[in-house]
Amino acid sequence: MKIRGDVDMSTSPDVRGKIAEAFRQIDAGSKAVLIDLSQVRYMDSSGIATLVEAMQNCMKRSLRLRLVDLSPPVRDIFELARLSSVFEIYASLAEAEAGL
C-alpha cells in the first residue's frame, strides 16, 4: 500500500483506517505488509504512532512490516525519533519483496 500527502494529527486517523483495511484484505499465506512512503510530504509523531501500531499488528499476525522508499521528511523524523533500526526499511519495492 502507498501513503501520500501529509500525515499529521488531522490525517493520521484516515491513514490508520487505510492500514486497517489493508490488514483485512491480506491473503492467507502472506508474509509481509509493505508500505510505500515515497509520496509522504510531511509526517509528525501521530504518523509514527500509526506505523508503530501497524508494526505491532503485524507482529501479532506473524507478518513482517516493511517500509519502502522513505521520502526525505519521513527520513528526517525517523532520524529524530531514532527509529531507523526499529523498522525494516527498503529503498525500493523490489528490494522489499526480495526474500519473502
Binding site: S45, I48, A49, V52, E53, L80, A81, V86
Partner: peptide, 11 residues
C-alpha cells in the same frame, strides 16, 4: 521504549 505516542516532547 518503542510504542505509539509520547515523541512530541522529545522533538
Amino acid at each position: 521504549d518503542v510504542r505509539p505516542g509520547g515523541l512530541g516532547t522529545h522533538f
